[in-house]
C-alpha cells in the first residue's frame, strides 16, 4: 500500500519531457505503420492470446499489457500478463465445467508475470498495392517465441532483456479497446 503510494508520488506522476514523449509516441505509431496491422486485428490477437493463456493461468485483465513495438526496424509484439493464480489440473477441469473458484492463489510477494514476446526481423515492407493482401500470418512470418516467467520485482531493476522493454516504458493498449467494426 505504502510503496504503491510512494511509487505514484515519485514516478508515475513525474511528467515526461516532450522529447521523450516524441520518441515514445513515434516508436509506437511506427510499429503499427510498419506492420500495417489494424487496431481491430491487434485486438483480436490480444483476445485470442488471452484466451489461450487463461486456460492455464488466471490473468489479471486490468493489468495486462499488449503492444506492438519497433526497435531498429524490427517490430515486436509484446504481451505482459500478470498472473493472479495458477490453475492446477483439477481446477482446469473445474473451469471447463463452469466453476472458477478452485484455483490456488500464488504467493503474493512473488507474483509472477508471464511475458510473451514475438520478434520478427524480416517484416515485409507494405506497399500500397500489397496492403490488402496482408494477413497476420504474412506479417509475422515464423516468429521465434519466448515464454518466460519473470519476477515482478525485477521490473524495477531494468534487468529485462533489451528486446523486451519494461512495461512502464511502453504505452499500453487499453484492456478492452472499442472494437472497430
Amino acid at each position: 500500500m505504502l510503496t504503491e503510494l510512494l511509487e505514484r508520488i515519485f514516478s508515475r506522476h513525474k511528467k515526461e519531457n516532450s522529447r521523450a514523449s516524441a520518441k515514445r509516441r513515434l516508436q509506437i505509431v511506427l510499429a503499427h505503420d510498419r506492420t500495417d496491422l489494424s487496431p481491430a486485428v491487434v485486438d483480436k490477437m490480444r483476445q485470442e492470446i488471452l484466451e489461450v493463456v487463461s486456460r492455464y493461468v488466471e490473468i489479471d485483465p486490468e493489468e495486462s499489457e499488449f503492444s506492438l513495438e519497433s526497435d531498429q526496424r524490427t517490430t515486436a509484439l509484446i504481451a505482459n500478463l500478470p498472473i493472479r493464480k495458477v490453475k492446477d489440473s483439477k481446477s482446469e477441469e473445474a473451469n471447463n465445467a463452469g466453476t472458477t473458484n478452485a484455483a490456488a492463489p500464488l504467493n503474493a510477494a512473488s507474483e509472477e508475470v508471464l511475458e510473451l514476446s514475438m520478434d520478427s526481423t524480416e517484416l515485409p515492407v507494405s506497399t500500397e498495392l500489397s496492403a490488402e493482401e496482408l494477413s497476420v500470418a504474412t506479417v509475422l512470418p515464423d516468429p521465434p517465441q519466448t515464454l518466460k516467467p519473470i519476477d515482478r520485482t525485477s521490473d524495477e531493476n531494468s534487468t529485462t532483456t533489451p528486446k523486451t522493454p519494461q512495461p512502464s516504458s511502453h504505452e499500453n493498449l487499453p484492456p478492452n479497446p472499442p472494437q472497430t467494426p
Partner: peptide
C-alpha cells in the same frame, strides 16, 4: 524539448 540526433537515428 526536441528529439536528439540519436533519438531520430534510433527510430
Amino acid at each position: 524539448m526536441m528529439m536528439s540526433v540519436k533519438d531520430v537515428q534510433d527510430i
